[in-house]
């Protein structure tokens, strides 16, 4: 008896990524730099979030040529982004053998009402969340991994911090509730009851939760690990910096040894300029990526 695409296999794949850094790359050369620096996976994209933000217009799934090029270049897992609710983009990426799909608010949503039914797929999905309700809804739809939404492409960690604290605070609250309070909590959060019950029983989310959306420095990565992230996604931060090789290695080291401050000080030296950040309040509300999806 052989089973593919089971929850255990899909969630287990994300478990193997724990303590690691997943890096956004736009070509084979960047993918190799990421692998060399110790990334646990790469996210193949046409443009990194900060460029998507600059370019405006509609952001879609990457050209399959880029995804294939990256898949051929490295032996670590390759992830790719599909638009929220875009069944066909997701199926196309699955057919190409991508290892993980990010149903991502970084791209322009294809559906403003419904997210993908991720249980239908053999390939596992990662989704963004800002709070426990959103996390539980995505798990209910079959997401095998979560990440904070943060505010992508800003180089500003404040939103990722907010979302990680929010999710973890609500998990703690839930764990301390008595079972008879949970249905009301489910109603208040708009979250599936069964998922909340499971989280309460296990004392934690049933899938790993990475930090994403605004990680720009090794210290940012270590901060997110201290706040309870299982690992870190770095989007624009690495390849928008002066010395991507060095920068990528520094982020990996700071993530592994997030409590070793001398080490973080050492790897943070002479990295050159980090990406220029954006203050969140200067982003008009319709341009905030974290508000896409629900």
């Amino acid at each position: 008896m052989v089973n593919v695409g089971t929850d255990r296999v899909k969630r287990g794949m994300a478990e193997m990524q724990k303590g690691g850094v997943i890096m956004d790359v736009v070509n084979a050369e960047q993918a190799k730099i990421a692998e060399e620096a110790g990334a646990v996976a790469v996210m193949a994209l046409e443009r990194v979030p900060s460029d998507i933000r600059k370019a405006g217009g509609v952001a879609r799934m990457a050209d399959p040529t880029i995804v294939e090029e990256v898949m051929h270049a490295v032996s670590i897992p390759v992830m790719a982004k599909a638009r929220i609710g875009h069944i066909v983009e997701a199926r196309v990426l699955e057919s190409m053998g991508v290892d993980y799909i990010d149903e991502s608010e970084v791209l322009t949503p294809a559906d403003e009402v419904f997210h993908l039914n991720k249980k239908d797929y053999t390939v596992p999905f990662v989704c963004g969340c800002r709070n426990l309700g959103e996390a539980a809804r995505r798990i209910g739809e079959g997401a095998s991994m979560l990440r904070t939404k943060g505010e992508p492409g800003t180089g500003n960690i404040v939103e990722a911090v907010r979302h990680m604290r929010q999710v973890n605070a609500e998990v703690r609250q839930l764990v301390n509730m008595s079972v008879d309070e949970i249905m009301t909590y489910a109603k208040d959060l708009g979250a599936p009851y069964e998922v909340l019950l499971q989280i309460r029983e296990e004392g934690r989310l049933p899938v790993v939760n990475f930090a994403a959306g605004g990680v720009a420095t090794p210290a940012d990565a270590a901060l997110m690990m201290q706040l309870g992230a299982d690992g870190v996604f770095v989007g624009s931060g690495i390849f928008k910096s002066d010395n991507p090789q060095k920068f990528a290695k520094a982020i990996v080291e700071a993530t592994t040894h997030f409590e070793d401050y001398e080490l973080i000080a050492r790897v943070s030296k002479d990295l050159g300029e980090a990406m220029k950040g954006i203050e969140i309040s200067t982003i008009p509300s319709h341009e905030r990526m974290q508000d896409r999806g629900w």
Binding site: R8, D99, P124
Partner: peptide
Amino acid sequence: QKDSFEAALSIEGVADDYNAVFIR
């Protein structure tokens, strides 16, 4: 990853009905 699977195994000296999880 899409080929990752679970299967029943017999492991000598350990178990003859072991559910093994293979991931990449």
